[in-house]
Deep mutational scan, measured.
Amino acid sequence: DAEELIELVERALKEGREIILLGVRITSEEAGKWFIEWIRRFL
């Protein structure tokens, strides 16, 4: 579910982890915020 995915992304970014989803590397909080917004819009 989308909320679970958002929580995972937020937690990983807070822990300083690198996330790779759909071939996109997300390493900064700014990118994470963009990704979370995208999830909310399309899922």
Score class of each variant (00 low, 15 high):
residue 1 D to G: 13
residue 1 D to V: 13
residue 1 D to L: 15
residue 1 D to F: 14
residue 1 D to M: 15
residue 1 D to Q: 14
residue 1 D to E: 12
residue 2 A to M: 14
residue 2 A to K: 08
residue 2 A to N: 06
residue 2 A to Y: 15
residue 2 A to H: 09
residue 2 A to F: 15
residue 2 A to E: 07
residue 3 E to K: 12
residue 3 E to Y: 15
residue 3 E to W: 14
residue 3 E to G: 09
residue 3 E to R: 14
residue 3 E to H: 13
residue 3 E to M: 12
residue 3 E to I: 13
residue 4 E to P: 05
residue 4 E to Q: 14
residue 4 E to T: 13
residue 4 E to K: 15
residue 4 E to R: 15
residue 5 L to W: 10
residue 5 L to Y: 09
residue 5 L to P: 00
residue 5 L to H: 00
residue 5 L to N: 00
residue 5 L to R: 00
residue 5 L to I: 08
residue 6 I to W: 10
residue 6 I to S: 05
residue 6 I to Y: 05
residue 6 I to G: 04
residue 7 E to N: 13
residue 7 E to T: 12
residue 7 E to I: 10
residue 7 E to F: 09
residue 8 L to E: 07
residue 8 L to G: 01
residue 9 V to Q: 00
residue 9 V to L: 07
residue 9 V to T: 01
residue 9 V to K: 00
residue 9 V to N: 00
residue 10 E to A: 06
residue 10 E to M: 11
residue 11 R to W: 10
residue 11 R to E: 09
residue 12 A to G: 03
residue 12 A to E: 03
residue 12 A to T: 04
residue 12 A to Q: 02
residue 13 L to P: 01
residue 13 L to M: 11
residue 13 L to T: 04
residue 14 K to G: 09
residue 14 K to S: 12
residue 14 K to L: 14
residue 15 E to D: 12
residue 15 E to Q: 07
residue 15 E to Y: 07
residue 15 E to R: 03
residue 15 E to S: 05
residue 16 G to W: 08
residue 16 G to E: 03
residue 16 G to F: 09
residue 16 G to Y: 04
residue 16 G to N: 10
residue 17 R to S: 06
residue 17 R to N: 06
residue 17 R to V: 11
residue 17 R to G: 06
residue 17 R to H: 07
residue 17 R to I: 08
residue 18 E to H: 11
residue 18 E to N: 08
residue 18 E to P: 09
residue 18 E to S: 07
residue 18 E to V: 09
residue 18 E to F: 09
residue 19 I to W: 04
residue 19 I to V: 05
residue 19 I to D: 00
residue 20 I to T: 14
residue 20 I to R: 02
residue 20 I to L: 05
residue 20 I to Y: 07
residue 20 I to S: 08
residue 21 L to M: 04
residue 21 L to V: 14
residue 21 L to Q: 01
residue 21 L to F: 05
residue 22 L to N: 05
residue 22 L to S: 02
residue 22 L to C: 15
residue 22 L to V: 04
residue 22 L to K: 02
residue 23 G to R: 05
residue 23 G to C: 07
residue 23 G to P: 04
residue 23 G to N: 06
residue 23 G to Y: 13
residue 23 G to T: 07
residue 24 V to L: 06
residue 24 V to F: 15
residue 25 R to L: 13
residue 25 R to Q: 12
residue 25 R to K: 12
residue 25 R to H: 14
residue 25 R to M: 09
residue 25 R to D: 04
residue 26 I to C: 14
residue 26 I to K: 02
residue 26 I to R: 03
residue 26 I to F: 05
residue 26 I to T: 06
residue 26 I to H: 03
residue 26 I to M: 04
residue 27 T to W: 12
residue 27 T to Y: 11
residue 27 T to I: 09
residue 27 T to A: 14
residue 27 T to G: 12
residue 27 T to P: 02
residue 28 S to L: 04
residue 28 S to Q: 02
residue 28 S to W: 07
residue 29 E to Q: 13
residue 29 E to L: 12
residue 29 E to D: 08
residue 29 E to V: 12
residue 29 E to N: 11
residue 30 E to F: 08
residue 30 E to T: 08
residue 31 A to Q: 15
residue 31 A to H: 13
residue 31 A to F: 08
residue 31 A to S: 14
residue 32 G to C: 05
residue 32 G to M: 09
residue 32 G to S: 05
residue 32 G to N: 04
residue 32 G to Q: 05
residue 33 K to T: 06
residue 33 K to P: 03
residue 33 K to Q: 10
residue 33 K to G: 05
residue 34 W to D: 12
residue 34 W to R: 15
residue 34 W to Q: 14
residue 34 W to S: 13
residue 34 W to N: 12
residue 34 W to T: 11
residue 35 F to E: 01
residue 35 F to W: 04
residue 35 F to V: 11
residue 35 F to D: 01
residue 35 F to L: 09
residue 36 I to K: 03
residue 36 I to E: 02
residue 36 I to D: 02
residue 36 I to Y: 05
residue 36 I to G: 02
residue 36 I to W: 06
residue 36 I to A: 03
residue 36 I to F: 04
residue 36 I to L: 06
residue 37 E to C: 01
residue 37 E to S: 06
residue 37 E to T: 07
residue 37 E to D: 11
residue 37 E to N: 08
residue 38 W to C: 14
residue 38 W to N: 06
residue 38 W to R: 03
residue 39 I to K: 00
residue 39 I to F: 06
residue 39 I to G: 01
residue 39 I to W: 03
residue 40 R to Y: 08
residue 40 R to W: 09
residue 41 R to C: 15
residue 41 R to T: 14
residue 41 R to E: 13
residue 42 F to P: 00
residue 42 F to I: 10
residue 42 F to L: 11
residue 42 F to N: 10
residue 42 F to K: 07
residue 43 L to H: 07
residue 43 L to A: 07
residue 43 L to W: 13
residue 43 L to V: 09
residue 43 L to K: 03
residue 43 L to P: 02
residue 43 L to D: 02
